[in-house]
Amino acid sequence: MARALVNAPKTAKAGEMMEIKTLISHVMETGFRPGMDGRIKPRDIITEFACEYDGEVVFRAALHPATSANPYLAFETRATRSGPMKLTWRGDNGFEQTETVDITVE
């Protein structure tokens, strides 16, 4: 079961920088490690993260096998207008999770 924690301001002043912090539960199996039976475990990682702020992509990240389990991503973006902020993680084996926070700009 995938779970995610998102910390973003509910309200912000126009022009202000907002810090968005995210944490998602994921094993991030590298694809290089042998399991208990000696066989290499298949890769299972998140490959892509994107943040859409009111329909516009404001932050995107590519993740690689060296990223730790449960990746934490934090970034800043400027508050321009009220709207939904859609955070999407995509990865191997069809993994996809979306979290949405509504941001009100005063």
Partner: peptide, 15 residues
């Protein structure tokens, strides 16, 4: 200290 950075909070959420 930071509940968003602490991966243990994911487990607590599942709990």
């Amino acid at each position: 200290r930071d509940d968003v950075q602490n991966p243990g909070m994911l487990a607590a959420g599942q709990g």
